[in-house]
Nucleic acid binder design. Structure first.
Lengths: 201, 201
DNA sequence: GTCTATAGGAAGATAGAC
DNA sequence: GTCTATCTTCCTATAGAC
Protein backbone atom coordinates (compact mmCIF):
# COMPACT_ATOMS: atom_id res chain seq x y z
CA UNK A 1 0.00 0.00 0.00
CA UNK A 2 1.28 3.39 -0.99
CA UNK A 3 0.94 6.23 1.46
CA UNK A 4 1.20 9.82 0.33
CA UNK A 5 0.53 13.16 1.95
CA UNK A 6 -1.00 14.34 -1.31
CA UNK A 7 -4.26 12.47 -1.72
CA UNK A 8 -5.31 10.93 -4.97
CA UNK A 9 -8.11 12.90 -6.56
CA UNK A 10 -9.08 10.54 -9.32
CA UNK A 11 -6.73 11.61 -12.07
CA UNK A 12 -6.78 8.18 -13.67
CA UNK A 13 -10.50 8.36 -14.33
CA UNK A 14 -10.37 7.98 -18.11
CA UNK A 15 -7.40 5.67 -18.37
CA UNK A 16 -9.58 2.66 -19.03
CA UNK A 17 -10.34 4.18 -22.44
CA UNK A 18 -7.61 4.23 -25.10
CA UNK A 19 -6.01 7.60 -25.82
CA UNK A 20 -7.68 9.01 -28.92
CA UNK A 21 -11.18 9.80 -30.16
CA UNK A 22 -12.94 7.30 -27.91
CA UNK A 23 -11.55 8.88 -24.76
CA UNK A 24 -11.90 12.43 -26.06
CA UNK A 25 -15.55 11.86 -26.95
CA UNK A 26 -16.29 10.40 -23.51
CA UNK A 27 -14.69 13.40 -21.81
CA UNK A 28 -16.58 15.78 -24.08
CA UNK A 29 -19.85 13.99 -23.37
CA UNK A 30 -19.24 14.15 -19.62
CA UNK A 31 -18.62 17.86 -19.89
CA UNK A 32 -21.62 18.59 -22.10
CA UNK A 33 -24.07 16.28 -20.30
CA UNK A 34 -22.94 17.75 -16.99
CA UNK A 35 -23.47 21.30 -18.19
CA UNK A 36 -26.82 20.98 -19.97
CA UNK A 37 -28.23 17.60 -19.03
CA UNK A 38 -28.44 14.50 -21.21
CA UNK A 39 -31.61 15.28 -23.14
CA UNK A 40 -30.70 18.92 -23.74
CA UNK A 41 -27.33 17.91 -25.18
CA UNK A 42 -27.16 17.01 -28.86
CA UNK A 43 -24.65 14.77 -30.59
CA UNK A 44 -23.56 17.94 -32.38
CA UNK A 45 -22.56 19.56 -29.08
CA UNK A 46 -20.36 16.58 -28.28
CA UNK A 47 -18.86 16.29 -31.75
CA UNK A 48 -18.10 20.02 -31.92
CA UNK A 49 -16.46 19.82 -28.50
CA UNK A 50 -13.79 17.55 -29.97
CA UNK A 51 -13.74 19.23 -33.41
CA UNK A 52 -15.43 16.40 -35.24
CA UNK A 53 -18.44 16.18 -37.53
CA UNK A 54 -21.69 14.82 -36.02
CA UNK A 55 -21.33 11.63 -38.05
CA UNK A 56 -17.79 10.92 -36.85
CA UNK A 57 -19.07 10.14 -33.41
CA UNK A 58 -20.84 6.98 -34.58
CA UNK A 59 -17.61 5.30 -35.62
CA UNK A 60 -16.62 5.20 -31.93
CA UNK A 61 -19.97 4.87 -30.17
CA UNK A 62 -23.11 3.13 -31.40
CA UNK A 63 -25.42 5.78 -29.97
CA UNK A 64 -25.78 8.73 -27.65
CA UNK A 65 -27.20 6.29 -25.09
CA UNK A 66 -24.03 4.19 -25.21
CA UNK A 67 -22.00 7.29 -24.56
CA UNK A 68 -24.07 8.04 -21.46
CA UNK A 69 -23.70 4.46 -20.29
CA UNK A 70 -19.94 4.51 -20.80
CA UNK A 71 -19.29 7.67 -18.82
CA UNK A 72 -21.79 6.67 -16.14
CA UNK A 73 -20.04 3.33 -15.68
CA UNK A 74 -16.60 4.92 -15.57
CA UNK A 75 -17.79 7.48 -13.02
CA UNK A 76 -19.46 4.95 -10.75
CA UNK A 77 -16.49 2.60 -10.88
CA UNK A 78 -14.21 5.49 -10.05
CA UNK A 79 -16.25 6.50 -6.98
CA UNK A 80 -16.24 2.92 -5.75
CA UNK A 81 -12.54 2.31 -6.29
CA UNK A 82 -11.50 5.67 -4.81
CA UNK A 83 -13.67 5.11 -1.76
CA UNK A 84 -12.28 1.64 -1.33
CA UNK A 85 -8.70 2.84 -1.77
CA UNK A 86 -9.22 5.59 0.80
CA UNK A 87 -10.03 2.98 3.44
CA UNK A 88 -6.98 0.79 2.83
CA UNK A 89 -4.97 0.15 5.97
CA UNK A 90 -7.32 2.13 8.23
CA UNK A 91 -8.96 0.17 11.03
CA UNK A 92 -10.23 2.72 13.54
CA UNK A 93 -13.97 3.19 12.95
CA UNK A 94 -13.73 6.95 13.44
CA UNK A 95 -10.84 7.26 11.02
CA UNK A 96 -12.63 5.10 8.47
CA UNK A 97 -15.63 7.43 8.54
CA UNK A 98 -13.31 10.38 8.14
CA UNK A 99 -11.45 8.80 5.20
CA UNK A 100 -14.63 7.73 3.40
CA UNK A 101 -16.47 11.04 3.68
CA UNK A 102 -13.33 12.94 2.77
CA UNK A 103 -12.68 10.86 -0.33
CA UNK A 104 -16.34 10.80 -1.42
CA UNK A 105 -16.67 14.57 -1.05
CA UNK A 106 -13.41 15.34 -2.84
CA UNK A 107 -14.47 13.11 -5.73
CA UNK A 108 -17.75 14.96 -6.17
CA UNK A 109 -16.04 18.36 -6.00
CA UNK A 110 -13.20 17.53 -8.37
CA UNK A 111 -15.45 15.71 -10.81
CA UNK A 112 -18.55 17.84 -10.26
CA UNK A 113 -19.51 17.78 -13.93
CA UNK A 114 -19.26 14.00 -14.25
CA UNK A 115 -20.82 13.67 -10.81
CA UNK A 116 -23.93 15.49 -12.01
CA UNK A 117 -24.26 12.97 -14.81
CA UNK A 118 -23.87 9.89 -12.63
CA UNK A 119 -26.13 11.17 -9.84
CA UNK A 120 -28.86 12.98 -11.76
CA UNK A 121 -29.11 11.15 -15.09
CA UNK A 122 -29.88 7.68 -13.80
CA UNK A 123 -33.39 7.97 -15.21
CA UNK A 124 -31.96 8.73 -18.64
CA UNK A 125 -30.20 5.36 -18.83
CA UNK A 126 -31.75 2.60 -20.90
CA UNK A 127 -33.14 -0.22 -18.73
CA UNK A 128 -30.36 -2.69 -19.58
CA UNK A 129 -27.70 -0.09 -18.89
CA UNK A 130 -29.41 0.92 -15.66
CA UNK A 131 -29.16 -2.64 -14.34
CA UNK A 132 -25.39 -2.57 -14.64
CA UNK A 133 -25.09 0.86 -13.03
CA UNK A 134 -27.46 -0.05 -10.19
CA UNK A 135 -25.24 -2.98 -9.28
CA UNK A 136 -22.21 -0.72 -8.89
CA UNK A 137 -24.26 1.72 -6.80
CA UNK A 138 -25.33 -1.09 -4.49
CA UNK A 139 -21.67 -1.97 -3.93
CA UNK A 140 -20.83 1.63 -3.06
CA UNK A 141 -23.78 1.91 -0.67
CA UNK A 142 -22.80 -1.38 0.95
CA UNK A 143 -19.27 -0.10 1.44
CA UNK A 144 -20.56 3.05 3.12
CA UNK A 145 -22.96 1.13 5.34
CA UNK A 146 -20.11 -1.17 6.38
CA UNK A 147 -18.00 1.83 7.39
CA UNK A 148 -20.80 3.42 9.43
CA UNK A 149 -22.16 0.18 10.95
CA UNK A 150 -19.73 0.02 13.91
CA UNK A 151 -21.21 3.29 15.17
CA UNK A 152 -24.84 2.15 15.32
CA UNK A 153 -26.96 -0.35 17.17
CA UNK A 154 -30.12 -0.44 15.09
CA UNK A 155 -30.35 -0.79 11.32
CA UNK A 156 -32.87 2.01 10.96
CA UNK A 157 -30.59 4.59 12.49
CA UNK A 158 -27.66 3.30 10.45
CA UNK A 159 -29.67 3.60 7.26
CA UNK A 160 -30.81 7.16 7.90
CA UNK A 161 -27.37 8.39 8.86
CA UNK A 162 -25.79 6.69 5.85
CA UNK A 163 -28.24 8.37 3.50
CA UNK A 164 -27.74 11.74 5.18
CA UNK A 165 -23.96 11.66 5.00
CA UNK A 166 -23.90 10.47 1.40
CA UNK A 167 -26.34 13.31 0.64
CA UNK A 168 -23.77 15.84 1.78
CA UNK A 169 -21.23 14.55 -0.73
CA UNK A 170 -23.64 13.95 -3.60
CA UNK A 171 -25.24 17.38 -3.32
CA UNK A 172 -21.80 18.94 -3.83
CA UNK A 173 -22.24 18.03 -7.49
CA UNK A 174 -25.31 20.27 -7.65
CA UNK A 175 -23.85 23.46 -6.19
CA UNK A 176 -20.11 23.24 -6.80
CA UNK A 177 -18.70 26.07 -8.95
CA UNK A 178 -14.95 25.91 -9.58
CA UNK A 179 -13.24 29.06 -8.41
CA UNK A 180 -16.18 30.26 -6.35
CA UNK A 181 -16.48 27.17 -4.15
CA UNK A 182 -13.96 25.91 -1.58
CA UNK A 183 -10.97 23.91 -2.72
CA UNK A 184 -11.98 20.23 -2.99
CA UNK A 185 -9.48 19.05 -0.39
CA UNK A 186 -10.45 21.77 2.08
CA UNK A 187 -14.11 20.89 1.56
CA UNK A 188 -13.41 17.18 1.93
CA UNK A 189 -11.66 17.72 5.27
CA UNK A 190 -14.42 20.00 6.51
CA UNK A 191 -17.20 17.60 5.53
CA UNK A 192 -15.35 14.68 7.10
CA UNK A 193 -15.34 16.61 10.38
CA UNK A 194 -19.01 17.48 9.95
CA UNK A 195 -19.81 13.81 9.49
CA UNK A 196 -17.95 12.90 12.66
CA UNK A 197 -19.92 15.48 14.65
CA UNK A 198 -23.09 14.24 13.09
CA UNK A 199 -22.39 10.66 14.11
CA UNK A 200 -21.11 11.48 17.60
CA UNK A 201 -24.62 11.78 19.03
CA UNK B 1 -50.72 33.40 14.67
CA UNK B 2 -52.30 30.00 14.55
CA UNK B 3 -50.66 27.18 16.46
CA UNK B 4 -51.44 23.58 15.68
CA UNK B 5 -49.98 20.26 16.73
CA UNK B 6 -50.42 19.01 13.19
CA UNK B 7 -47.92 20.89 11.06
CA UNK B 8 -48.81 22.34 7.72
CA UNK B 9 -47.31 20.37 4.90
CA UNK B 10 -48.00 22.71 2.03
CA UNK B 11 -51.45 21.61 1.02
CA UNK B 12 -52.28 25.04 -0.36
CA UNK B 13 -49.51 24.85 -2.91
CA UNK B 14 -51.63 25.22 -6.04
CA UNK B 15 -54.27 27.52 -4.66
CA UNK B 16 -52.82 30.53 -6.39
CA UNK B 17 -53.99 29.02 -9.68
CA UNK B 18 -57.73 28.95 -10.45
CA UNK B 19 -59.46 25.60 -10.20
CA UNK B 20 -59.72 24.19 -13.70
CA UNK B 21 -57.45 23.40 -16.63
CA UNK B 22 -54.78 25.91 -15.68
CA UNK B 23 -54.22 24.33 -12.28
CA UNK B 24 -54.63 20.76 -13.57
CA UNK B 25 -52.02 21.34 -16.28
CA UNK B 26 -49.55 22.79 -13.77
CA UNK B 27 -49.99 19.81 -11.48
CA UNK B 28 -49.62 17.42 -14.41
CA UNK B 29 -46.48 19.20 -15.58
CA UNK B 30 -44.98 19.05 -12.08
CA UNK B 31 -45.65 15.33 -11.98
CA UNK B 32 -44.30 14.61 -15.46
CA UNK B 33 -41.28 16.92 -15.26
CA UNK B 34 -40.45 15.44 -11.86
CA UNK B 35 -40.65 11.89 -13.17
CA UNK B 36 -38.80 12.21 -16.48
CA UNK B 37 -37.10 15.59 -16.41
CA UNK B 38 -38.10 18.70 -18.36
CA UNK B 39 -36.46 17.92 -21.69
CA UNK B 40 -37.56 14.28 -21.73
CA UNK B 41 -41.16 15.29 -21.12
CA UNK B 42 -43.28 16.22 -24.12
CA UNK B 43 -46.31 18.48 -24.24
CA UNK B 44 -48.19 15.33 -25.24
CA UNK B 45 -47.28 13.65 -21.93
CA UNK B 46 -48.70 16.60 -20.01
CA UNK B 47 -51.83 16.90 -22.12
CA UNK B 48 -52.55 13.17 -21.85
CA UNK B 49 -52.11 13.37 -18.08
CA UNK B 50 -55.16 15.66 -17.90
CA UNK B 51 -57.04 13.98 -20.77
CA UNK B 52 -56.58 16.83 -23.20
CA UNK B 53 -55.28 17.05 -26.75
CA UNK B 54 -51.74 18.41 -27.26
CA UNK B 55 -53.15 21.59 -28.78
CA UNK B 56 -55.47 22.29 -25.86
CA UNK B 57 -52.53 23.07 -23.63
CA UNK B 58 -51.69 26.24 -25.57
CA UNK B 59 -54.96 27.91 -24.70
CA UNK B 60 -53.80 28.00 -21.05
CA UNK B 61 -50.04 28.35 -21.38
CA UNK B 62 -48.05 30.08 -24.09
CA UNK B 63 -45.34 27.43 -24.13
CA UNK B 64 -43.79 24.48 -22.37
CA UNK B 65 -41.21 26.91 -20.99
CA UNK B 66 -43.93 29.02 -19.37
CA UNK B 67 -45.33 25.91 -17.74
CA UNK B 68 -41.92 25.16 -16.25
CA UNK B 69 -41.59 28.74 -15.05
CA UNK B 70 -45.03 28.70 -13.46
CA UNK B 71 -44.50 25.54 -11.44
CA UNK B 72 -40.95 26.54 -10.52
CA UNK B 73 -42.19 29.88 -9.20
CA UNK B 74 -45.01 28.30 -7.24
CA UNK B 75 -42.63 25.74 -5.75
CA UNK B 76 -40.01 28.27 -4.74
CA UNK B 77 -42.58 30.62 -3.24
CA UNK B 78 -44.06 27.72 -1.30
CA UNK B 79 -40.69 26.72 0.17
CA UNK B 80 -40.02 30.30 1.21
CA UNK B 81 -43.43 30.90 2.76
CA UNK B 82 -43.51 27.55 4.57
CA UNK B 83 -40.03 28.12 5.97
CA UNK B 84 -40.97 31.59 7.08
CA UNK B 85 -44.22 30.40 8.64
CA UNK B 86 -42.39 27.64 10.52
CA UNK B 87 -40.28 30.26 12.32
CA UNK B 88 -43.19 32.44 13.45
CA UNK B 89 -43.17 33.08 17.18
CA UNK B 90 -39.97 31.11 17.82
CA UNK B 91 -37.08 33.09 19.29
CA UNK B 92 -34.66 30.52 20.71
CA UNK B 93 -31.82 30.06 18.20
CA UNK B 94 -31.76 26.30 18.73
CA UNK B 95 -35.49 25.99 18.26
CA UNK B 96 -35.38 28.15 15.16
CA UNK B 97 -32.81 25.82 13.59
CA UNK B 98 -34.99 22.87 14.50
CA UNK B 99 -38.12 24.44 13.03
CA UNK B 100 -36.43 25.51 9.80
CA UNK B 101 -34.73 22.20 9.05
CA UNK B 102 -37.86 20.29 9.97
CA UNK B 103 -40.07 22.38 7.71
CA UNK B 104 -37.60 22.43 4.81
CA UNK B 105 -37.12 18.66 4.94
CA UNK B 106 -40.83 17.90 5.21
CA UNK B 107 -41.51 20.12 2.21
CA UNK B 108 -38.98 18.27 0.06
CA UNK B 109 -40.33 14.87 1.13
CA UNK B 110 -44.01 15.69 0.67
CA UNK B 111 -43.42 17.51 -2.61
CA UNK B 112 -40.52 15.38 -3.82
CA UNK B 113 -41.68 15.45 -7.43
CA UNK B 114 -42.08 19.22 -7.57
CA UNK B 115 -38.89 19.54 -5.51
CA UNK B 116 -36.93 17.72 -8.20
CA UNK B 117 -38.16 20.24 -10.73
CA UNK B 118 -37.32 23.33 -8.69
CA UNK B 119 -33.91 22.05 -7.57
CA UNK B 120 -32.64 20.23 -10.66
CA UNK B 121 -34.24 22.06 -13.59
CA UNK B 122 -32.88 25.53 -12.92
CA UNK B 123 -30.69 25.24 -15.99
CA UNK B 124 -33.73 24.47 -18.12
CA UNK B 125 -35.31 27.83 -17.33
CA UNK B 126 -35.11 30.60 -19.91
CA UNK B 127 -32.78 33.42 -18.83
CA UNK B 128 -35.58 35.89 -18.05
CA UNK B 129 -37.45 33.28 -16.03
CA UNK B 130 -34.28 32.30 -14.23
CA UNK B 131 -33.77 35.84 -12.98
CA UNK B 132 -37.13 35.77 -11.20
CA UNK B 133 -36.50 32.36 -9.69
CA UNK B 134 -32.98 33.26 -8.58
CA UNK B 135 -34.35 36.21 -6.61
CA UNK B 136 -36.70 33.93 -4.64
CA UNK B 137 -33.84 31.51 -4.00
CA UNK B 138 -31.70 34.32 -2.61
CA UNK B 139 -34.47 35.19 -0.17
CA UNK B 140 -34.70 31.59 1.01
CA UNK B 141 -30.95 31.32 1.42
CA UNK B 142 -30.88 34.60 3.31
CA UNK B 143 -33.59 33.32 5.65
CA UNK B 144 -31.59 30.18 6.35
CA UNK B 145 -28.37 32.10 6.93
CA UNK B 146 -30.21 34.41 9.34
CA UNK B 147 -31.43 31.41 11.34
CA UNK B 148 -27.97 29.83 11.53
CA UNK B 149 -26.02 33.07 12.09
CA UNK B 150 -26.44 33.24 15.90
CA UNK B 151 -24.53 29.96 16.15
CA UNK B 152 -21.39 31.09 14.31
CA UNK B 153 -18.61 33.59 14.72
CA UNK B 154 -17.08 33.68 11.26
CA UNK B 155 -18.93 34.04 7.96
CA UNK B 156 -16.99 31.23 6.30
CA UNK B 157 -18.09 28.67 8.82
CA UNK B 158 -21.67 29.95 8.67
CA UNK B 159 -21.68 29.64 4.91
CA UNK B 160 -20.38 26.10 4.85
CA UNK B 161 -22.75 24.85 7.51
CA UNK B 162 -25.71 26.56 5.82
CA UNK B 163 -24.91 24.87 2.53
CA UNK B 164 -24.44 21.49 4.21
CA UNK B 165 -27.72 21.58 6.10
CA UNK B 166 -29.71 22.76 3.10
CA UNK B 167 -28.07 19.92 1.15
CA UNK B 168 -29.62 17.38 3.50
CA UNK B 169 -33.10 18.67 2.75
CA UNK B 170 -32.63 19.27 -0.96
CA UNK B 171 -31.14 15.84 -1.58
CA UNK B 172 -34.29 14.28 -0.16
CA UNK B 173 -35.91 15.19 -3.48
CA UNK B 174 -33.41 12.94 -5.27
CA UNK B 175 -33.85 9.75 -3.24
CA UNK B 176 -37.33 9.98 -1.73
CA UNK B 177 -39.67 7.15 -2.78
CA UNK B 178 -43.17 7.29 -1.28
CA UNK B 179 -43.99 4.16 0.64
CA UNK B 180 -40.40 2.97 0.76
CA UNK B 181 -38.95 6.06 2.46
CA UNK B 182 -39.68 7.32 6.00
CA UNK B 183 -42.82 9.33 6.63
CA UNK B 184 -42.11 13.00 5.86
CA UNK B 185 -42.81 14.18 9.41
CA UNK B 186 -40.65 11.47 10.95
CA UNK B 187 -37.87 12.34 8.53
CA UNK B 188 -38.23 16.05 9.23
CA UNK B 189 -37.92 15.52 12.98
CA UNK B 190 -34.92 13.23 12.53
CA UNK B 191 -33.11 15.63 10.20
CA UNK B 192 -33.81 18.55 12.53
CA UNK B 193 -32.06 16.63 15.29
CA UNK B 194 -29.20 15.76 12.94
CA UNK B 195 -28.78 19.43 12.13
CA UNK B 196 -28.64 20.34 15.79
CA UNK B 197 -25.89 17.77 16.40
CA UNK B 198 -24.09 19.02 13.37
CA UNK B 199 -24.12 22.60 14.62
CA UNK B 200 -23.32 21.79 18.23
CA UNK B 201 -19.57 21.45 17.53
C1' DG C 1 -11.91 7.14 -39.93
C1' DT C 2 -13.53 11.32 -41.38
C1' DC C 3 -16.32 13.98 -44.14
C1' DT C 4 -20.98 15.94 -46.61
C1' DA C 5 -25.54 15.06 -47.33
C1' DT C 6 -29.70 13.35 -45.93
C1' DA C 7 -33.14 9.97 -44.41
C1' DG C 8 -36.56 9.27 -40.89
C1' DG C 9 -39.00 10.57 -37.13
C1' DA C 10 -40.46 13.17 -33.22
C1' DA C 11 -41.55 17.39 -30.81
C1' DG C 12 -43.24 22.29 -30.09
C1' DA C 13 -46.49 25.10 -31.72
C1' DT C 14 -50.27 26.83 -35.00
C1' DA C 15 -54.53 26.81 -38.24
C1' DG C 16 -59.04 26.48 -38.54
C1' DA C 17 -63.42 23.82 -37.86
C1' DC C 18 -66.88 23.23 -34.32
C1' DG D 1 -62.09 26.10 -25.25
C1' DT D 2 -61.40 21.86 -27.36
C1' DC D 3 -60.61 19.16 -31.17
C1' DT D 4 -58.01 17.14 -35.68
C1' DA D 5 -54.65 18.01 -38.83
C1' DT D 6 -50.43 19.76 -39.93
C1' DC D 7 -46.43 22.96 -40.30
C1' DT D 8 -41.67 23.63 -39.16
C1' DT D 9 -37.73 22.65 -36.99
C1' DC D 10 -34.43 19.93 -35.02
C1' DC D 11 -32.23 15.71 -33.76
C1' DT D 12 -30.40 10.87 -34.06
C1' DA D 13 -28.48 8.02 -37.04
C1' DT D 14 -27.12 6.26 -41.73
C1' DA D 15 -25.34 6.34 -46.72
C1' DG D 16 -21.75 6.75 -49.46
C1' DA D 17 -17.64 9.37 -51.24
C1' DC D 18 -12.80 9.98 -50.18
Amino acid sequence: MKISSEPSVGGELWEMLPVGPRRALAQAAASEFGKRGYHATTTRHIAEHVGMSPAGLYVHYASKAELLFTISRIGHESVLSESSAALEGISSPDERVHALVRSFTIWHAVNHNLARVIQYELRSLEPKHYQVIAAIRRSTEALAAEVFRPLFRDAESLSMHTVAILSLGIDVARWYVPGRSPDPIVLGEAYAKLARNLLRA
